[in-house]
Write a protein that binds this DNA or RNA. Structure first.
Length: 595
DNA sequence: AAAAAAT
């Protein structure tokens, strides 16, 4: 039996060999973005779509200066390069891989050829806000520019997904956006395309950093809650930005900072980062946010929850970033609890709220099962599942299993136990080194170790093709976390299976879980319904169990507002009795379950 | 109580 996965391991190891960060050597010759890939003179007068801030020590080059200097402290001869796009292009590592055909094959298989658009056809959409730009049906309807269009073709994006159809025109119209969209439905492109396009057509600006300070001034900042998600966004964005002249750099903790500093010094237009490392870079004055025109928060509700909020506030409000209105802000997530929407509105200006999808449509793609399993029986129960899968040939490269546990120690313990029992597994969690984390993820993706035991570090955003089964070995305390976890399967319109082990320890989740499953047309076991009926009204840890289907614009709920007291309304959120308390007065199934 | 995120 060993041979089957061993063979896979050999194959996939070979295939996967080149995927590490082996960027081709590229010389640190700086070319300002407005001089790259464009007709040298004519386009330097392109109007800026969004009002660009002009901080005090920044000189806006809004005149007819054809010889616009670099935005950072690069050698003055730098613009010798930009006059032909070819000169630069040759130096840019090809994010599609060495051979385009091979890359296209791998890429298409991963994300796009495979998108089952039928699964998204009927998805309901809600927008609110004034003068919302209408959706488009094709990429061709939007003027994203030839270079970007070419990358879209390279990615085999045939037509936009629903979130892209709606979000891109709204972003291109310059509006702030709070967007909810299903897991795996193309969020990254939805905020990347407008950013790349906007930077390409933007007015060249330059600044004069203090002498000797190697500060860089990105035009766009994309924040995400985990390092691996930042890496993923970076890789994807690089594909979209290929040969556009727009440079994308990633910065996250746990990795040597020096390489990241060198990447930054070569110039950055879009910075993808995790909060901690970014704060470090800001405090070292290696990065300034003065020139930020676009701010995107991926997994925005996570970024604004208790653990992250102070850091995000520091970055967005207490450094040198232009205020709302002077930048364009885009928040994306699958789940958007009301209280988080309230926090988020601090970062937004006259925003459009957009929600695409609902429980009961896209999440139909995920079959959810809940099984009552005592703590002491969990391992043997998991073993039964895995043996059954093995017997059915559901394993290996095309059928990965992702097992979520509650604790880091628990993850290690389960991994060892699985390996001892001849199920090749690896683990990812915050106690592992970054190297180990990245290796684990690669090994899982490649099918080398078709079982990954993970903490919530892997719950959000990660796009791992071929995850056939998500097992909630330990259920999370928060239903939104559950939604994100199971969203690691059933992506791009494909089907997936999610199994949860439930016992008395999860009583507080019962109601929310039962509701969610019902809304997604899943079979709810009777015992779980009874549990749900018994459990307390929305209180306790799962305060969102009532109001959490919060992918509804809080601004629309004026009739429920409690005398305008935004901060002290927690007591009214519990969902006691009155219909307004539970689910904010809208029935089940309005929205939710998205990335 | 736990997880994540800077060194």
């Amino acid at each position: 039996m060993r041979t089957s996965w061993a063979d896979l391991a050999v194959n996939s190891a070979a295939e996967n060999g080149g995927t590490s960060n082996s960027t081709a050597p590229s010389r640190p010759v700086y070319v300002p973005p407005h001089l790259r890939n464009r007709a040298p003179a004519a386009e330097s007068h392109a109007p800026a779509p969004a009002p660009a801030p002009a901080p005090s020590n920044v000189i806006a080059n809004n005149n007819n200066n054809n010889n616009a200097g670099p935005r950072w402290s690069a050698p003055p001869h730098a613009n010798g390069w930009g006059n032909t796009s070819v000169g630069w292009d040759r130096r840019e590592a090809n994010p599609f891989g060495d051979q385009e055909e091979k890359a296209e094959e791998a890429f298409g298989e991963q994300e796009n050829t495979g998108i089952n658009f039928d699964a998204y056809e009927d998805i309901p959409v809600e927008t609110s806000g004034e003068n919302v730009a209408p959706p488009v049906n094709t990429f061709a309807e939007i003027d994203l520019g030839e270079a970007l269009n070419k990358n879209i073709r390279r990615c085999k994006y045939v037509k936009p997904t629903p979130i892209q159809r709606h979000a891109i025109p709204i972003s291109l119209s310059g509006r702030d956006l709070m967007a909810c969209a299903q897991t795996g439905s193309g969020k990254t492109a939805a905020f990347c395309f407008p950013i790349i396009s906007g930077i390409m057509r933007g007015q060249p600006l330059q600044q004069r950093p203090p002498r000797g300070v190697r500060t860089v001034y990105p035009l766009a900042l994309v924040l995400s809650p985990t390092r691996e998600l930042s890496m993923q966004i970076h890789e994807e964005t690089r594909k979209f930005a290929y040969q556009t002249g727009v440079r994308v750099v990633v910065a996250y903790g746990g990795a040597p900072i020096n390489q990241q500093l060198r990447d930054l010094e070569r110039g950055v237009d879009i910075l993808v980062a995790t909060p901690g490392r970014l704060v470090d870079l800001l405090e070292r004055a290696r990065v300034s946010l003065q020139m930020i025109r676009y701010l995107a928060l991926d997994e925005a509700d996570r970024m604004l929850d208790m653990g992250f909020e102070p850091q995000i506030r520091k970055i967005v409000e207490q450094m040198d970033m232009p205020p709302p209105g002077a930048r364009q802000t885009m928040l994306f997530s699958a789940t958007f609890p009301k209280e988080i929407q309230r926090l988020a509105s601090d970062f937004l200006s006259n925003y459009v709220f957009l929600t695409v999808g609902r429980v009961g449509s896209s999440t139909d793609l995920i079959v959810q099962r809940v099984e009552y399993v005592q703590e002491s029986d969990k391992r043997s129960h998991l073993m039964d599942l895995l043996h059954a899968q093995r017997a059915n040939g559901v394993q290996g490269k095309q059928a990965l299993t992702l097992v979520f546990v509650e604790t880091k120690k628990g993850a290690d313990a389960l991994e060892h136990w699985l390996c001892r029992n001849n199920f090749p597994a690896t683990t990812i969690h915050g106690d592992r080194t970054q190297q180990e984390r990245e290796l684990a993820l690669r090994s899982f993706k490649s099918g080398n170790t078709p079982i990954l035991v993970a903490t919530d570090v892997a719950a959000r955003g990660l796009d791992i093709p071929h995850v056939a089964h998500v097992v909630n070995f330990d259920l999370p305390n928060d239903i939104d976390d559950y939604v994100h976890r199971i969203g690691r399967t059933g992506r791009a319109g494909k089907k997936g299976l999610a199994t949860a082990f439930f016992n008395d320890n999860n009583a507080s989740l019962a109601r929310a879980l039962a509701d969610l499953m019902q809304e997604s047309n899943q079979e709810v076991p009777d015992w779980l319904s009874r549990y749900a009926a018994r459990s307390t009204f929305g209180g306790g840890r799962n305060r969102r169990s009532g109001g959490r289907f919060g992918a509804r614009d809080i601004r629309k709920e004026g009739s429920f507002s409690r005398g305008g007291s935004d901060y002290y309304s927690a007591g009214n959120n519990g969902g006691y009795g009155a219909p307004s308390g539970y689910a904010g007065g809208y029935g089940p199934g309005v929205t939710s379950a998205w990335d």
